[in-house]
């Protein structure tokens, strides 16, 4: 679950209120003027002392090239390699992609995964927006504490969160037990666990805090005077939300939804644990089985590359949408942190 980190760093809001608690990705308040801060004269002076620059950048840059760039490029290269009798040869071929798009199963898998991810995204948004709204605007005391309470689950083991649903939804699980004891059903429901719905519920549970954090960050950064100005200009609470709060919170919504979508689409453990036969239909599970079971790495690489391309395309779109929706004084979401200009 290495996709989790950016939002985790978001700082708790200050109880004192005010505009101080703006959190972008990486979690720090971010002054747009600062984003592209050019190197100062002192920097250039230093940079001229070449060895220092070299020493400073050689380790991180070569590290990133060796352990990130090369592996990702290798994955791309591998997707064009041929598997012959279970052995990878370095002959170039488009066979993997032809097979990927030629077999109905694979595009169907991608669509199914996107469908699951979309449902998770929509539900996460529906759950987290009201909570973020209450946290940002309604909670007066112990705001830090309550915000912490929302993000604590992010620090709790992923497996624990996924597995809890097995206890709840299982045939002998709590939900069945409760339903039986109140007499709503006569025999335990077996459809609860090992279904797409179970996967969607668990993934929603796991990723809702990710959706919540950027939304909270933008809501918290909206100056209270803007909402007051709207009320002063004859808009009631509903219209104030519609015309002022909602448009200004869109960057956070975009960032939160992107998180939920990308992370749940890339998840392969919860589907395997809770999804039963459907689980094989998630694209990440496909990658997993092509690499771990079928040992068809080139085809697995091709599926990964498609996934990678879809993810990057989504991020680019989200980043652009988010950048358009930013108005200086409102904090940036995490997507812009990645997709925005340096």
């Amino acid at each position: 679950m290495s996709g989790v980190a950016p939002a985790l760093g978001a700082p708790p809001p200050s109880d004192a209120g005010g505009a101080g608690g703006a959190g972008g990705a990486g979690g720090e308040p971010r002054d747009p003027a600062h984003r592209a801060r050019p190197a100062t004269r002192l920097d250039r002076l230093r940079a001229r002392r070449g060895w220092r620059t070299l020493l400073g950048s050689v380790v991180p840059v070569s590290w990133a090239v060796t352990l990130l760039l090369v592996p990702y490029v290798l994955l791309l290269a591998q997707s064009f390699w041929r598997l012959r009798d279970g052995v990878i040869t370095h002959e170039l071929t488009t066979e993997n992609y032809r097979r990927l798009f030629g077999t109905p199963l694979y595009p169907a898998t991608i669509l199914y995964s996107a469908g699951v991810a979309l449902r998770v995204t929509v539900i996460s948004l529906a759950l987290s927006y009201p909570l973020a709204y209450v946290l940002a605007f309604k909670v007066r005391r112990h705001r830090t504490l309550m915000y912490m309470a929302v993000i604590i689950p992010l620090w709790v083991s992923y497996l624990v969160r996924a597995y809890a649903w097995k206890i709840i939804l299982g045939q002998d699980g709590i939900l069945n037990g409760l339903l039986l004891s109140v007499g709503l059903i006569r025999a335990p429901l077996t459809v609860l666990l090992y279904s797409t719905a179970a996967v969607v519920v668990a993934l929603t549970h796991i990723y809702t805090p990710f959706t919540l954090m950027p939304i909270y960050a933008v809501l918290d950064a909206i100056p209270v005077s803007l909402r007051e100005a709207s009320q002063d200009l004859y808009a009631g609470r509903w219209r104030t939300w519609l015309h002022v709060t909602l448009p200004l919170s869109l960057p956070g919504v975009v960032a939160g939804c992107t998180f939920a979508f990308v992370l749940s689409m890339g998840d392969f453990l919860a589907p395997q644990l809770l999804g039963g036969n459907d689980s094989a239909l998630m694209v990440s599970n496909l990658v997993w089985s092509l690499f771990g079971v079928a040992f068809n790495w080139p085809l697995g690489a091709a599926v990964s590359v498609v996934m990678l391309a879809l993810t990057l395309a989504l991020l680019a779109v989200a980043g652009a949408v988010e950048a358009r929706g930013r108005y200086g004084q409102v904090a940036t979401g995490a997507v812009a942190e990645y997709a925005g200009p340096i």
Binding site: L226, E228, A229, Y234, L248
Partner: peptide, 18 residues
């Protein structure tokens, strides 16, 4: 506020940025 016959000019202007 939205039902009072007064209007306000805010300290930091509070212009809607969008």
């Amino acid at each position: 506020p939205f039902k009072r016959p007064v209007n306000t000019v805010f300290q930091q202007y509070a212009l809607f940025p969008h």
